[in-house]
């Protein structure tokens, strides 16, 4: 490109903020459009079409897949999945918050500790879940160790129980809780805590009245980052739960494989997605309200 042409292009760029903004958004936006929105739209379309006998869909329009979902069988699964995801989120919060808090106070070990938190991401989720199997099973590491030091005679049944599923979920998603909470605690202005202390706040009051409310954005972000994927999880319940229970994620997976009912799988995904969307919207609305109440004179 000749210098003058290059200069002209730069000038054009410089004097057109709209062009400039769009050129920044375009690559990511295009990516999202092609690889996220288009598939989602396709799934949405599928969910209203009759099922193809051997997979895929046939042309036509039907609501049967959504109607089918509102059977008590599937609603129960949805309910159980929601409860599981909620328990997992709460457990991650209770375990993750103190860890995040400790890391912000860890001084020169901060980097090391953060590194340790993200270390599990270096291997695939699958591999880590398998490692969990070798830990938990009757002849696994934990039971063998407990037996060899004589604490127990019979192995404790851990693998293929609801406990194992929860353990796997919490283990898998804990970093997603720790990191955003850490980020919001890290930003916390320590002089606010000193101010509270001078004003008479003891440690518990300082935590609940200052630290916790100010780290709430991190808590909410972490909760969403844990809740949403655990709603859709299916590997953990298969591998650590012995596939004895079915969650929404397993249901959807089955529809796209063995059951060859793509439209029903799509419909189930959309019900799940709607649920997530509604809960996020409720959260935003609540936050907006409290913001209004605090703001306007």
């Amino acid at each position: 490109m000749s210098r003058s042409l290059r200069q002209r292009a730069l000038d054009y760029f410089h004097h057109n903020p709209t062009v400039r903004a769009w050129s920044l958004v375009a690559p990511g936006g295009l990516w999202l459009l092609v690889f996220f929105l288009v598939p989602v739209f396709m799934m949405f379309t599928y969910s209203f079409m009759p099922r193809g006998m051997y997979g895929g869909v046939e042309s036509g329009f039907t609501l049967e897949h959504y109607l089918r979902f509102f059977d008590s069988l599937y609603l129960t699964i949805l309910m159980r999945t929601t409860v599981d995801a909620t328990v997992c989120t709460v457990a991650c919060l209770l375990l993750g918050y103190p860890v995040a808090y400790a890391i912000t106070r860890a001084g020169r070990f901060k980097g090391l500790l953060l590194f340790l938190v993200i270390l599990p991401f270096w291997t695939s989720f699958l591999v880590r879940t398998f490692a969990m199997i070798f830990l938990l099973r009757d002849t696994g590491l934990i039971n063998t160790a407990l037996q060899s030091i004589g604490l127990i005679d019979e192995p404790i049944v851990m693998l293929y129980t609801p406990f194992a599923v929860m353990l796997g979920l919490v283990y898998g998603y804990l970093p997603f809780m720790i990191l955003p909470i850490y980020a919001s605690l890290e930003k916390l202005d320590l002089s606010l805590l000193e101010a509270a202390e001078v004003l008479g706040a003891r440690p518990a009051a300082r935590f609940f009245r200052v630290t916790l409310p100010l780290s709430l954005p991190g808590v909410v972000a972490g909760a969403l980052l844990v809740f949403i994927p655990s709603l859709g999880s299916f590997l953990t319940s298969d591998l650590l739960g012995g596939a004895k229970e079915i969650l929404i994620g397993n249901l959807v997976q089955n529809q796209f494989t063995a059951a060859r009912n793509w439209p029903f799988g799509s419909a189930a995904s959309f019900v799940l997605m709607a649920l997530v969307l509604v809960s996020v919207l409720i959260y935003l609305r609540v936050r907006e309200r409290s913001g209004d109440a605090a703001g306007a004179p």
Binding site: R80, I246, N261
Partner: peptide
């Protein structure tokens, strides 16, 4: 009957 079998499976697991 694939659908009926799948529902059966869901019933069993639930």
């Amino acid at each position: 009957a694939t659908d009926a079998w799948d529902q059966l499976w869901t019933d069993i697991k639930s």
